[in-house]
Design a protein around this nucleic acid. Structure first.
Lengths: 216, 216
DNA sequence: ATGTTTCCACCTAGGTGAAAACTT
DNA sequence: AAGTTTTCACCTAGGTGGAAACAT
């Protein structure tokens, strides 16, 4: 057995619902944003390995702009096209997984789901939702932050909500990006194939029962 | 300002929904226990003061037999009567509040509700429900357990579920008992006044809307 | 007889897309 | 014309007491 001090832990992350994300990505994923806040579908669900079972970690997700463009959906070609520079300033917010901080053992025991994360276009929102701008392309990122002993006794949430997590610290921080999770924000769906896929796969969307019958 | 080492913290607990409990207690509180597990109504809701804001605590509830009697409900006198010695052995279990462990600051910020606690008569239950025997009188107890630094890095749940919390440690443990929370276990309500009060006050019980109209 | 289990209609609570109303 | 907000019927998920079936 290797002495504890010589063990090297290398966190790795895989996307549990990768296939589902990919189905959406091929069409061009759209996420509805509302004033009240709307969940993402699919939600980000990951399998984590390589953590120190006894060490405490914070899991977080933030969502960054892919570029400086504004987008519009062109119906006759069924695709999203860049349509000029954006004048919207990025509003960096980080969603901390509510189980944070927890020990590596806990995070690795089963998939970690960020299904409580909500998107909004309401700039003044006070509910911890992630503020985005409509008609823009975004890329979610997953962050694993080591919680050292000092932090444990300080504050449960080490990272302020209103700053990008990667601006805080590079020590003990690992970031993972899955490009199939990129999406365009909308206030109403543009591509009807996206609407259909959402209805087929999201249990909360009406029509689920009828659609699911076909699979059985 | 008094030096940290000289500050004495004395935890105190008051029952937030004392009036509601008292209404039930006057009639003779009954709690339904089922195989699947049933919530208590009212649930235990407390306000906590006098904790060290920076220290971590575990909040727990256990439910102990009031006596060795079996009870039966006498309809013509509308009251519970002792009916011989019980042959049921007590099955000590402790419900740990899911936010445990948290810092004193968190516990004191707002009322602490044990509404996820469930009662069962199913001895083999694996879901962390509290196992009780039907037709017996019980007394809930609230425990506040200090979490020292060693425990924080050990296990989130310091106290095993299958042992009484007061058998573990008397150091840094305070126990609070509110006699108005005592109740009799049943598998079906005996006293119709209890049924009525439950329907009137529990939003999940049918008839709530009709009853509540009268208050407006 | 008396107590327990199962099933169910009726609730709360909250996540969906569609359509209508609204804004610019 | 294009995008946003509001409202709502329709879902999931799960907490109630009641009635009937079951057990002892």
């Amino acid at each position: 057995r290797i002495p504890e001090s010589q063990v090297r832990y290398t966190p790795t992350v895989s996307l549990s619902n990768k296939e589902l994300w990919w189905k959406f990505y091929k069409i061009g994923t759209e996420m509805i944003i509302t004033k009240a806040g709307r969940r993402m579908f699919p939600s980000i669900k990951i399998d984590v390995h390589g953590l120190n079972p006894d060490k405490r970690y914070i899991m977080a997700v933030d969502i960054v702009p892919v570029d400086n463009s504004r987008y519009r959906y062109v119906y006759h070609s069924s695709q999203w096209m860049a349509a000029g520079q954006t004048d919207a300033e990025p509003t960096p917010c980080t969603y901390i997984h509510p189980d944070s901080p927890s020990k590596g053992e806990i995070w690795m025991r089963q998939s970690v789901t960020f299904d409580k994360l909500k998107l909004t276009n309401y700039e003044m929102n006070k509910k911890g939702h992630i503020v985005l701008h409509s008609m823009h392309k975004y890329q979610p990122r997953i962050h694993i932050l080591e919680c050292d002993v000092n932090n444990v006794h300080d504050n449960s949430y080490v990272v302020p909500h209103n700053r990008r997590i990667d601006e805080i610290s590079q020590n003990g921080l690992k970031t993972f990006v899955f490009s199939e999770c990129a999406f365009t924000t909308v206030t109403a769906y543009q591509n009807q194939q996206i609407t259909k896929l959402k209805i087929d796969r999201n249990p909360f969307a009406k029509g689920f029962r009828e659609a699911s019958k076909q699979w059985q």
